[in-house]
Design a protein around this nucleic acid. Structure first.
Length: 440
RNA sequence: CGGGGUGUAGCUCAGCCAGGUAGAGCGCCAGCUUUGGGAGCUGGAUGCCGGAGGUUCGAAUCCUCUCGCCCCGACCA
């Protein structure tokens, strides 16, 4: 993609409306623009990141045995009356009437809908277990949206729902999601720590929030420092017993400030006290919806029983902000390779110069042909402005091509995260950017 | 939902107290110069001063109402 053609409205100054760093950087880097309070337009650069995050979530959900579906954004109030939540949910639910004066709503969550899908189509224990998920826009009419996409009213969320015959099976589904979450966040370059959360009326110990540590996090969190070093499980067999993995992660102390107690038994030097951002939440809620909504299956013996259910959320759009909170410096964003909107920013220091133009065009063509996402700055800006732009938008690699280097037969490869620079030949630079080890 | 603040050019903001032809910097357009860390000079375009009423000879400025947005607290992926 040539920068001269790319829709990338940058801001040099900090917008007055943005308080926290991720919000400021997302506006300055031309990723989003606000439409209304807590509601955003996603511009090309931001949307690319959103899609990459979404894809990682999707791949890990699929790997864990969940199946993707898509449910409606607009729901009928009927189902919510069945579950009893229509009256309970309060003003956060956006209520709408259609032309026939029927009560509708813009879905803040989908337990009712998915339970309805289940009960109408699955009737036998033989069809269990099932985990269904979607990646979908939701709307919660927050009293006070803030922090840009971290706390918007409209947000993209992955929500999964599990259906099991009994508690033992429900725990296995829960564990699948637990492990999938560890892997999902790790792939985005984040250290997400599962912390015990309020389990609600049922569910026992089966409720965890996944929290990433960031100075600007919304809540105070505490955890054993060993959790930060714990390696994420590789090559998981989701059909096997995942309980040991879950136990390993939950045996160490970790709690948000609401659940934090003094008698945690962690030595003071091992206790980390920090700020955290909730990026995921998993919990089992037993029969809460299956019983009132009559989602039952036939058992081995005669008779039917309601299914055990759980739900598993990931704040996909929130993650865009959360990753920036966890990965930036004074100059701008530092994208982890796995979610970066482009892999490399190719900087032509002297657009219009025959030789730099030729070399840049060749690099752009060869990298693109190899499947590497390139943002080629072919504009007439001065070098300083180009460097500042690339640093701001945070692409993992910058490939700098100028007349001065070309005279020596070199181009410059710069790693955004570390600032390391390498003067190498064009061939070497291309090879390194194509190599799998460089990220992609 | 309580408390506070704010709306003036694309962005950041001044002007309002004390009414009298709407401003600056950045950005944008044109030209010349410049070209390895957000360049310089010259010229130019851009505003229903959030909206509606009112007071006044005259309102960005004073009054009333209204809408939007932001921040702090109580709630949430």
């Amino acid at each position: 993609m040539r920068l001269s053609r790319f829709f990338l409205p940058l801001l040099k100054e900090n917008p007055a409306d943005a308080e926290i760093v991720s919000h400021r950087l997302m506006l300055r880097a031309g990723m989003i623009r606000q439409h209304a309070s807590g509601i955003y337009n996603w511009l090309p650069l931001g949307y690319r990141v959103l899609r990459r995050i979404e894809q990682i979530v999707r791949e890990e959900q699929d790997a864990a045995g969940a199946q993707e579906i898509l449910m409606p954004t607009i729901q009928s109030a009927e189902l919510w009356r069945e579950s009893g939540r229509y009256e309970d949910y309060g003003k956060e639910m956006l209520r709408i009437k259609d032309r026939h004066d029927r009560d509708m709503l813009y879905g803040p969550t989908h337990e009712e809908v998915v339970t309805d899908v289940f009960r109408k189509n699955i009737h036998s224990y033989r069809d269990l277990p099932k985990i269904l998920y979607q990646i979908h826009w939701k709307f919660r009419d927050e009293v006070r949206p803030r922090f840009g996409v971290m706390r918007g009213r409209e947000f993209l969320m992955k929500d999964a729902y599990s259906f099991d015959l009994d508690m033992e099976a429900a725990r296995r589904s829960y564990n699948r999601m637990f492990v999938a979450y560890l892997r999902t966040f790790r792939r985005m370059g984040l250290t997400a720590i599962p912390m015990a959360a309020d389990s609600g009326p049922i569910g026992g110990d089966m409720s965890h929030e996944f929290i990433i540590l960031a100075d600007t996090g919304e809540s105070a969190v505490f955890c054993h420092k060993a959790l930060l070093e714990k390696p994420t499980p590789e090559s998981v067999n989701y059909e096997g017993d995942l309980q040991p993995v879950v136990d390993e992660w939950t045996s160490l102390y970790a709690a948000t400030d609401e659940k934090h107690t003094e008698n945690h038994g962690v030595a003071p030097e091992d206790l980390i006290s920090a700020r955290g951002i909730e990026v995921g939440h998993i919990f089992n809620f037993g029969l809460k919806y299956s019983r009132p909504m009559d989602a039952v299956v036939q058992t081995v013996s005669d008779g039917t029983i309601p299914v055990q259910m759980g739900s598993y959320g990931i704040g996909v759009s929130r993650l865009v902000g959360a990753i920036i909170e966890a990965s930036h410096d004074d100059a701008g964003i530092i994208w982890p390779d796995s979610v970066a909107p482009f892999h490399v920013g190719l900087i032509n220091l002297k657009a219009g110069d025959v030789e730099t133009d030729r070399v840049c065009a060749e690099i752009d063509a060869r990298l693109s042909a190899a499947g590497v996402d390139v943002l080629y700055d072919d504009t007439q800006e001065r070098p300083g402005a180009k460097f500042a732009t690339m640093d701001l938008i945070g692409l993992p690699w910058q490939l700098i091509v100028g007349p001065r280097g070309l005279e020596k037969g070199v181009v410059e490869l710069k790693r955004r995260a570390t600032g390391e620079r390498y003067e190498v030949s064009m061939e070497t630079a291309i090879d390194r950017l194509i190599a799998p080890s460089s990220g992609s």
